[in-house]
Nucleic acid binder design. Structure first.
Lengths: 344, 344
DNA sequence: AATATTAGTGGAAACGTTTTTACTAAGCCA
DNA sequence: TGGCTTAGTAAAAACGTTTCCACTAATATT
């Protein structure tokens, strides 16, 4: 390393509005008016100012601007984890909706209450508004939080702050998945649910029950098992399910990761998919396409939802209630049919 | 929506340092000294100030602080895309190294020159320093950029700014992958490389050649084909490779996505893996574990590398050259052995 | 013709901090 | 005892903007 080159940082004195005003022979306020188009300026001075600004390569100091306008442009996003196709897609959607002078600020909460709290606390100090996917935090706390800073909640419907929620119709999604299996002749359908303290998990289970009911299939609670949305959880749940000897012909897992776990367990026991047991997941993460067999699943329009969340937040920051309402809040799930389901 | 509740934002006047000073009966500067421990203060006043600050729930306005210190705390990260296990892991590593008063600012460049430029241009205005993974941007431009703002480059070694590079020894990685195949008795080994204008791709190819040479296997350029790091590219490359009828028994693909594409192509032609052809990928993205057969691959310690990049940048921002040098810059690849390789 | 509006401009306040400078009183060394 | 350092504090400058206010000159309105 001793022969490694040293990097010289040219201090490169950046031009301030003051220098622009001096060189253009006008006042600071006039420069500001020209650059922000915030007041009447004669064509001649406008030209002059723009020319000088260009020549000096003047870039307004965003910190100074932020201080006086009390708007930094930061949009904070709090999610469970970054390295997941689920949140990744959401983030991409959010980023796609950002305006030129806003920027994306990411912080992870790891689905733990304390970390979700500190994540959001941190964002509160730096961002103008927050988009959050909370897993651990309870409604009451979220509502309180939304009184302190503009907040859009993803993946969850909370009545008190409904205009600030972007969510999937999970009941419809659960219904869709289960109906798909029923249409393929399945009657004994197991369900691996997520943690039932989460509204998402409850809604999917509800959709499952609805679909059964619509087809006049009796609900058997022994066919339903609660797991934790993780791959390992899916594995364990499947094993316990098999131990019950309930003779089911299909499984609907409340997310793809659990479905992947189920797949591993079944393969382990030499149970063939879809010949012996059909499998449906939920989320359509990238993985689903690559599993073998590829996984039939429910797709959430995550990018669109992320985009909507950002649009709602930006509208709210502009106090544009109209625009905020016009954005779509409730999204519909879609069934992606692949190879893990077979007709009985 | 007409019955949707309205959210009332309590303006919740936040306390300023001025009010703290008034209530504590001291000057503003004293408050600042207490809170930043930046000067001598008597025990008595210290206590008083802390008490009042606590009582008012005083939080310094970070924008004001940033203006005067000329440090926002923002760490900008420019990457190809967020929704990928590769960059996701990197981001997690970066986030893990951030201090309490720095925050993560993410922007995507989509591997296109223009977008990489605007991404970084945007970050320059908001962040104190930047960590970037550039795919399209050329060395010369990167070097110039690094003179304008503290910049750490990931996944690439650039001599002129070596102390600011965090990268994998890709030659060693290519060597590892190829040697693994050779150890399993393979002699005719094809290589699907990435775009060869990228140093990573060149280094991996170089490692491949080194391994062949070490085993005294002659290099056959017809066994090497250039693709673009994408799944589809891997598919096409495999098909072209097969058309050449070169009778190879193994493929080393320069990343997992191309390996996944190769897998699809081979399955399509009813070629069995690993019985007929062995396959090694590179990167160990999550996908690799789930492919069928699961993919033997080369792992980059992405989290560690992201963490190192952040540490280097933070050290540099603190003008701590010592600390900056102590962080590891060059990382070693590791072979992850799974089911896609079989002895001949 | 008198008055009200408006375009166009500059000066200065304000945003909420950190930091520099200046001052006082006390302790120390010679 | 007299000058020198130092702890402890306050006042004020500085950071670089936006925005409010005041002013002039020109134009429009009555």
């Amino acid at each position: 390393m001793s022969n490694a080159p040293m990097i010289k940082h040219s201090p490169s004195k950046v031009a301030t509005i003051k220098e622009v005003s001096r060189l253009a022979g006008v006042s600071i306020s006039t420069v500001s008016r020209v650059l922000n188009e915030s007041g009447p300026v004669s064509e001649a001075t406008k030209l002059k100012v723009v020319e000088v600004a260009e020549q000096l390569n003047y870039k307004p100091n965003l910190l100074a601007r932020a201080l006086v306008t009390n708007r930094s442009g930061g949009i904070g996003v709090s999610i469970n984890t970054i390295a997941s196709p689920f949140f990744g897609a959401m983030l991409e959607g959010i980023e796609s909706a950002l305006t030129k002078d806003s920027y994306l600020l990411v912080s992870t909460g790891w689905a733990e209450l304390e970390r979700e709290r500190s994540s959001v606390e941190h964002l509160k100090e730096h961002a103008d508004g927050i988009i959050a996917y909370f897993e651990a935090m309870q409604e009451e706390e979220i509502i309180r939080l939304s009184q302190e800073i503009p907040l859009v909640i993803m993946g969850r419907y909370i009545f008190d702050i409904a205009p600030n929620c972007v969510y999937l119709d999970n009941e419809q999604g659960g219904f869709l998945a289960t109906s798909h299996l029923i249409e393929h002749g399945h009657k004994r359908i197991a369900h691996i649910s997520g943690k039932l303290n989460m509204p998402d998990a409850r809604a999917r289970l509800q959709g499952y029950r609805q679909a059964l009911a619509s087809a006049s299939i009796p609900y058997d609670e022994r066919l339903v098992i609660e797991a934790d949305f993780s791959e390992l959880g899916g594995q364990r749940a499947t094993e316990r399910l098999l131990e019950r000897h309930l003779n089911f012909s299909a499984i609907f897992a409340a997310n793809d990761q659990m479905a992947a776990g189920a797949l591993l367990s079944l393969k382990d026991k030499s149970i063939r998919i879809p010949e012996d047991i059909s499998l449906v997941g939920y989320d359509d993460i990238i993985l689903a396409r690559y599993l073998s067999p590829s996984l039939t699943t429910i797709r959430q329009p995550l990018r669109e939802m992320g985009k909507a969340a950002a649009q709602i937040l930006l509208a709210q920051l502009d106090h544009d209630v109209q625009r905020q309402m016009e954005v779509k809040h409730k999204f519909e799930a879609e069934l992606i049919s692949r190879q893990s389901v077979k007709s009985l």
